[in-house]
Each structure stands twice: as structure tokens, then as C-alpha cells.
Design a protein around this nucleic acid. Sequence first.
RNA 1: GCGAGUGUAGCUCAGUUGGUUAGAGCACCAGAUUGUGGUUCUGGAAGUCGCGGGUUCGAGUCCCGUCAUUCGCCCCA
Length: 423
Amino acid sequence: MPGNKEQGFSAPRGMRDFYPEDMALRNRLFDTWRQAAENFGFKPYDACVVESLELLKRKSGEEIVDQIYHFKDKSNRDLALRPEMTPTLARMVSARQGTLSLPLKWHTIAQCFRYERTTRGRKREHYQWNLDILGEPSVAAEAEILATAVSALEKLGITGTMLRIHFNSRALLSDLLKTVDISEAKHPAIFLALDKRGKIPDEAISELMHKAGLNDDETAKAWRMLDMHTLDDVRQTVPDSPALAQLDEFIRVCASYGFADRLMFDMSVIRGLAYYTGIVFEAFDIKREFRAVFGGGRYDNLLTEIGGQPLSGVGLGFGDVVIAEIINAYLPNDGESRPECDTAIGYMEESQRSAAILLAQKLRSEGDSVDMALAPEKPKKFFTRTGRGSYQKAVYLGPDDIERGSARIKDLASRTETEITLS
RNA sequence: GCGAGUGUAGCUCAGUUGGUUAGAGCACCAGAUUGUGGUUCUGGAAGUCGCGGGUUCGAGUCCCGUCAUUCGCCCCA
């Protein structure tokens, strides 16, 4: 939309304005996230939006710097708008590592920024719900985090027939690569190369693996790994893999929570971020029409990179942009407006204003939300304005009502009126 | 960073090979109905055609630039 016509101002590229009508969905989403997190015992935390560039570099690598909004402050410090919450979490936990009791479960809704071309489902700014469990090595952590996210999805009306959680395990991929004698040092490069499958040509992926030090034979073996589509295929190759046993246990725990039917093993889920080491997951809509709704996995070395003690954790990031698209596509009637305010009060003349204020204050003290007119209105205008769905009830005061000491409160949906006393 | 499309009233959009004063529907405001709203009728207001430059006797229309936006690619939350 064009912005201010005289000066041509609009929100900068990729940044969003939230008008009151936009806040309805956003607040519902945020409330749902917070309720689910509290329901599962996650503690809220928050942090500054500006981070030191060095912290982000150390975690994400030099090459990511041109995708970050960064700048120098007046003392020449290199700072950045956070592109994700995990480095900040690592910094905060590391600072109190000696005193925090583990495992810890924290959550936050963080606005994150990223400087890149905008496209469907991707802005330069978004809100991301972050769930993290630190200090629990068992798959109970993965299952608990996913159960929390699934709970939020259910509250939003997104059922198992609309969305599936695709999962894989980097540890399992490592076990598979070991069986074909590819050294462990080369695994991370292979993961990052294979993660690009479907995004860049296969030849380019093979080229990436060659650059990572794999010969033709090893590259072919890495490719063959992806031909396995089911856990049974994998089981035949590495029947004794500890990572496979973990996945079996993971599925069992998820079944106890009751959402195992939403899970789907998927060798192509690898995740682009370098720090994942174990189970990884991404949630997609059934039609695969949209980008991932949420994603995450287990990381083991997050704190050691910034000087802390080793601590295993599981994290999940759930953005506000894609889920809004999914809700609009799968639940099209969800956006219908509903009353935002209990009662509207209007009056005919200035001389009824004080009575209107008294009534408004009385109803407010009883807990109703009340929108009282700030100026006199003709009755037709008042009822036209208030009858558009924003209010449940309306009271209109005129001279006769003040004389009688009572007024009629109207239920706007049923158009029925009941008497209330003015006192 | 690369490629393509779009930009006309609050919204959705018409607008002929360049031709006088730029239109429609919905929404809005007023009246019919001077104390009661979702349907009806009548009337009204509202646009520097994203912005800037160029070509032309003349530009919403053609050209260049710029900003915003959408969709791909790179990349990834």
C-alpha cells in the first residue's frame, strides 16, 4: 500500500505495521503461545533486541553477517538486531550456568530481524516463539517441546489432517555415514550440502561435497543414503545404531502424549543451521504449499562456543508469518470479526454526558469493557456505528431517560432491550 | 544480490492505436424516517492516476529512474 501521499512514507521494506484489525490475530496467536508454554511449565524470559555482532558471528559464522542488520554505535561498537534468539539464550544461560537448576524450560516471543529479499512467508522482521529445554539429554525433551507446540496448534484449530511434523536425526545420518567409512569430520559439510537438495541442482550439491573433501565414491555413498525413505530401510542398514534406538524411543514417548500420528520420518529434513547434532524436525502443512511452520532440534555445543560448559539442549522456533498464512488458507472463516468491547454508551445532548459517565464507570467497575461516546450523537448515527459487530450491547441516553432514572440496554445481536437503573 | 509482474477513490478494480472535465461496485456521509442499527430509495463527498524526470500540440496510457508491493532464484527464521 502507498504510505503518506505527500512524502511517500511507508514502512521500510519487509517491515510490518499492525493496525488494530491486524492486532486481533496477532494477540490471539501470542496468547495461545503463552498459554501453551505456561500450560507445559515453561518459564518466560526476554532480552534486548540489539546484540553484539561478535556473539552472532561466533554462532552463525562470518558469511551470515551480510544477512544481519548490523551497525556501529557512537562508540564504534559492532551491534546487530538479533536474527534469532538462540545465541542470546546461550549467552544468558552461560552467564548463570553455575546457579541454574537443570533441566530448565524457558520460552519467549522474540521479534527477530533478517536482511534479505522478502518473499512469501518471509519478511525482514517477524515474531518467533522460542521453546528451549536445556540440560536434559533424553528424548523426553524433544517430545515435551513438540507436545507444547502441538498444543498451541490445536488451540489455533490446526489439526493433524492439516499439518505434519517431519523429523530426522543427524546422529542417525552420522551412523549411516560411518557404515560407509566416511570420517566424522566430514559429516557436518555433508549435512549442509544435502540440506540444499531440491533448492539447488543435484550436481551443485555433489560439487559442494567434493569441496568438503569427499571423493567420487564417498559422494555416491552419501547420495545413496537419501534413497532410504522409511525407518525400516534404515534399520536394515544400521540395526544396532544408538541413534535409531533413540528415534524409536522418541516415537514411543510422543505416542504417550498422543500426537505420534502427526509425526513423519523424513530423510530430507536436515536443517541449515550448523549447530544441530541430534533429532531435528520441521512442521509442514499437508499440501506442502507453505514454508515450515516451525522447526528445531537438539544441539550439544551451543554454550561451549561462547565459553560455557557443555550442555545439551533442544530448541524450537515457531514464527508468526507462516502460521498466519496457514490459518487463512485452512481456516478461512477464522478471521471474522467478533465483538471487541462489551458495551457502547451514547447520548443525545451534552446534558446527558455526566449520567453517561456515571453509568460507564459503574459498568467498568463491574468488569465490563465500555466504550463511551466522547461527543453527543443522533440516535441513528449511534446505533449505526455500534451495530457493526464491534459491540455486544448498547445504551443510548436521552432527556427522557434521565428524567425516569432508568435506561434501556440493548443486546445488539438479538435487538432486545432490558431496563437498567441509572444511579 | 539476480529475474519477472503490479501500483488509478478507504477497498476491489475498469479506463480503447496517446485525445476535452478519469469511471463502476462495495464502503463512507446526508436526507426520506427530528429517540433506535444490518434490507430499500434519493442525493453527496472523495483521486497531483505511487513519486521524479523525459518524449509529445497533448501522457493514467509510451520511455528512463526511483520507492513500495507480489512471485520466483540465492539464502534461511
